[in-house]
Design a protein around this nucleic acid. Sequence first.
DNA 1: GGATGTGAAGTAGTTCACAGCC
DNA 2: GGCTGTGAACTACTTCACATCC
Lengths: 231, 231
Amino acid sequence: MATPRLRSKKLSEPTIARLPVYQRIAEGWLHRGVSKIDSKQIGELAGVTATTVRRDLAGLGSFGTRGAGYDTSVLIERIAEALGHDRLYDVVVVGIGNLGRALVNSSNFLIRGARLVALYDNDPAMIGHEVAGLIVQSLSEPIPPATVGVICTPGFAAQEVADRMVEANIHAILNFAPQVVTVPLGTAVHYVDFSIELQILMYHLNNGTGPLGGGLLHSLGIASTNPLRAS
Amino acid sequence: MATPRLRSKKLSEPTIARLPVYQRIAEGWLHRGVSKIDSKQIGELAGVTATTVRRDLAGLGSFGTRGAGYDTSVLIERIAEALGHDRLYDVVVVGIGNLGRALVNSSNFLIRGARLVALYDNDPAMIGHEVAGLIVQSLSEPIPPATVGVICTPGFAAQEVADRMVEANIHAILNFAPQVVTVPLGTAVHYVDFSIELQILMYHLNNGTGPLGGGLLHSLGIASTNPLRAS
DNA sequence: GGATGTGAAGTAGTTCACAGCC
DNA sequence: GGCTGTGAACTACTTCACATCC
């Protein structure tokens, strides 16, 4: 299925999670007209050490300049390549409530490489409305064979939507609903749970440990894959 | 600052990120009337190995029953304690757009221990409206000294809002805006970035590696401490 | 029997320290 | 001078294997 593309050897999971952060930082720098950035600056803003930044970037090939740092736009480009942004991924979103609207209207969510192709909801009041340039369709309409499916429904509807996506030959699902769904082997589900971030913050507040001690830091949402059949 | 509480020794960062997942799974089972759950079942649903689950839970003290598993409600309770849910955290949300509304209306976001105390926006059309039982206030109103501040504004407003929160003596910030903010030492900022999940999914799709390949894959959560000063 | 809890072993990720290059 | 890139050392996390208890 699809050309393997054999890019950089392979990147570790933590590295993959940090690259988008570096990319965003570099975009901010570029936007402000700065054309060079070094690992120390990236590290401070991303909340990691300069060494970690260099290791991560070394994995994409040597493109830094010794003594000077990284060229901002080259950095952005290399990360985009490594992450596969030069390919086009079709994205469908099911559940156009507050969250769904927030996502599709955010310049933030649909980054380069991702193209929104369809929106679904089962609320008659919502169907037919235009959101982010697309008409919201009924869930009774067929789902096109997109690359990524995003679930923004309430928890009780998540499993049914996931089933529909699997039928439509979607193999990658991003689930914002607070509900564990089961899918066949070969389909990846990533869970995004806002409350988890809040809970991690609360833990550190309660213990005085970790993150509170220092300035900038970042944290990512948890993502778990669960290729198991229904229990 | 604040009572240390000296609970369980100390939990590792990956463990802290997984506990809320286990808790949610247990809540689902309890809701369906199941009073026992074992590490294998939790692991399958959470996408981690049974051993990892047992190690994580062993860190909160021994409360499982050998041969039977964990009592669902005890499990929920123990995780709540470990995470500090028996304390009350006041939460203020700034930016009541689609995302802000999605968060405060979600049963999912404000878990036990978190209490919403104020909402702010600078859109005159929004100010005065009731959302989730609270009146949306103007940003010119003073921010009360809450425990956690949540930023749901567009990126350009994030830094100003963060400054206001720091002034209001808030030491923990959850930032949903796609913007790195700088704060004084002693304040923690956690960034939540939806597009990062999408990008991670895209990477794996592109490489055929990891999650798609099938087989259980772990959840990942990175949170790093950075004892650096804001630049 | 069956599942927990945990030393011991293994693996992955981070940090150190410095050679290499601009 | 400064910063990258990387072997080597270190640390942290996960997995194995099994003793322990219901």
